[in-house]
Design a protein around this nucleic acid. Structure first.
Lengths: 190, 190
DNA sequence: TTGCTTCCTGACCGGTCGGTCAGGAAAATG
DNA sequence: CATTTTCCTGACCGACCGGTCAGGAAGCAA
């Protein structure tokens, strides 16, 4: 019987974990459930990943990195161009990482956060500061929160819509929310 | 030593559970934690509430009932008036039940849902159908999702803002999202 | 063949979970 | 007073959790 290639199992674990974490939440998903679906032992999971949290971290790694890049790119822009650019990039981000984001629905879920999760949380806070500076009006702050949570919710609630169509729709609503000329927004990819 | 009045403990349990469920999530909150903060035994909790889920159910009961009433009231309205009215009532609902809604952040959290939670989920689906009929365009469906999740997120993200101010801000953003004349929207209470 | 590394298993560990149960104290009832 | 009902406790239960560990099978290199 031939041994499967190098890290085939590793990839399968990630795929299954992604699905279960998204569906049930991080805490509600046990290592045994993942092992059952992957059809290996629980100990095999912990051979490839040191802990349960390490599986989660591997799944959000790309997302957090992209978020970091977005904030870096924004810092180089003149203030006036930041908001529309952030809209474009945010839409691209959530569309690209739809599956990973689904795992984050239950945020308080992680309890004491792993370093990658904490970093993601911190970056999300910085995004909010760009959308509405700390001293902004209630209306502005509400707008920022609605956009942030709405974007996420729409992504997860419309799994049947393909990426491009979803991105266009989100850009449209984003333009209305922030009262930006839709012409100034274009669909981008990360 | 005088016995505290009839169901003082019951109310205290609900208050503590509300706070912990909101902060940590339903699953991450153990009966022992609640008992510790209430300063009674775990068994005492289970004397007043048959199960852990029953505590949760008691906490969302008012919310679900109000949601039911909103949908009933909407059914009596001509179609054209439904959207603006739903906006007004939704804002009133989330503002009124801010604390209870905070517990619902991690939705997949409940696993197999208790009857009240399932009823709440079903009602939320019906709200979405009013916001964007099943056959609506992607843009319309995205708008509905953004409003729904955004409303919730804004409520939870702005705990420092008082109810009236928050309601006004949410109505303002809602009007922009659905392209409704803000004059047609007034702040209401449930 | 021998020895080393990679990959994985089954048994097991301490801990925590939601929930049960026998029984006791206090208040209400007669 | 005695009895019943209400309210609560501490000990306990089985289930499951994330994680560990000794060891075995398979592949590779010498």
């Amino acid at each position: 019987m031939s041994r499967p290639p190098r890290d085939a199992l590793r990839r399968e674990i990630l795929a299954v974990a992604q699905r279960l974490f998204s569906t049930l939440g991080f805490r509600a998903t046990s290592l045994q459930m993942i092992a059952d679906e992957v059809d290996c032992s629980k100990a095999a999971l912990l051979y490839h990943f040191t802990t349960k949290a390490a599986i989660f971290d591997a799944l959000v790694e790309g997302l957090v990195d992209d978020l970091q890049r977005i904030l870096d790119a924004l810092a180089d822009l003149p203030t006036r161009q930041r908001l529309p650019r952030l809209l474009e990039l945010s839409v691209a981000l959530v569309v690209k990482h739809r599956e990973a984001l689904a795992m984050l629905r239950g945020l308080g879920d992680l309890g004491e956060m792993s370093p990658p999760a904490a970093r993601g949380q911190e970056l999300a806070d910085r995004v909010r500061d760009v959308l509405a500076a700390p001293g902004a009006s209630v209306q502005q702050r509400a707008t920022a929160h609605i956009f942030e949570h709405g974007l996420l919710g729409a992504c997860l609630g419309l799994p049947d819509v393909d990426d491009d169509e979803l991105a266009d729709a989100l850009l449209g609503v984003g333009a209305r929310i922030f009262d930006i000329d839709p012409q100034r927004l274009t669909r981008v990819t990360l």
